[in-house]
């Protein structure tokens, strides 16, 4: 909105004052939201870094273990054992709200199992397969944890960016433009009043 577009009337001035007040309170609220989101982000950042490092480590170790199992037992044995596994891990994915940001909350049924609960025969397989299975159970556990934390952090970052843009737009564009328009109307109204006074004096004289 440029100053030229503004109609210098009292009703426009009242409307502009109302808009400025609303923008200022919105700016204050958004700033508070941004600070709150940044605090939440810092709280979760350390956890995210640890979980990601553990996840990468666990993935490498699991791959190593399954490769050892494949090379010792043969790929056919490992594959046939893998297909005999039962009990799929079930998840409960819920959404929770952190300062207006929808983040997932994931809970799972127990992933780690005893050897005799896995579904394959103990006699026909070696300990390398057991180790690989255990490593992958730990990996899935870590994946579930990382999925929740990393998605939360991504959502928080997206919202921090959005809120920052809104705060900046209000602070550096909307409020200054509205204030400029308000000042222009005040100036024009004062000028009109002075013109009126002058006109009246001329008529009287």
């Amino acid at each position: 909105m440029t100053v030229q577009d503004v109609k210098p009337t009292r009703s426009e001035l009242i409307e502009l004052k109302r808009k400025i007040k609303l923008s200022e309170s919105g700016h204050k609220l958004l700033k508070m939201k941004r600070d709150g989101l940044i605090l939440e982000f810092f709280e979760i950042l350390k956890k995210a870094k640890t979980v990601r490092a553990e996840l990468d480590e666990q993935f490498i170790s699991s791959m190593e273990k399954i490769n050892v199992a494949k090379s010792v037992e043969g790929i056919v044995t490992v594959k046939s054992t893998a297909f005999s596994f039962k009990d799929t891990p079930r998840l409960e994915v819920e959404s929770k709200n952190v300062m207006g940001v929808v983040v997932p909350k994931i809970e799972s049924s127990s992933i780690k199992k005893d050897i005799n609960e896995r579904g394959y025969g103990i006699i026909g397989t070696s300990s390398r397969i057991d180790e690989a299975a255990e490593a992958y159970e730990n990996l899935v556990d870590k994946i579930i944890l990382a999925a929740e934390i990393e998605t939360t952090i991504k959502k928080l970052l997206d919202d921090i960016e959005k809120t920052k843009r809104r705060v900046n737009a209000l602070e550096f564009k909307v409020i200054p433009e509205l204030s400029e328009a308000r000042d222009f109307i005040i100036l024009r109204l004062d000028e009109m009043e002075r013109e009126n006074t002058f006109r009246l004096k001329r008529i009287k004289a």
Binding site: F83, F85, K86, T88, Y136, E137
Partner: peptide, 11 residues
């Protein structure tokens, strides 16, 4: 994907 079958993942 093979290893994930060992953790019981079916999909």
């Amino acid at each position: 994907t093979l290893g994930f079958r060992m953790a019981g993942v079916k999909k």
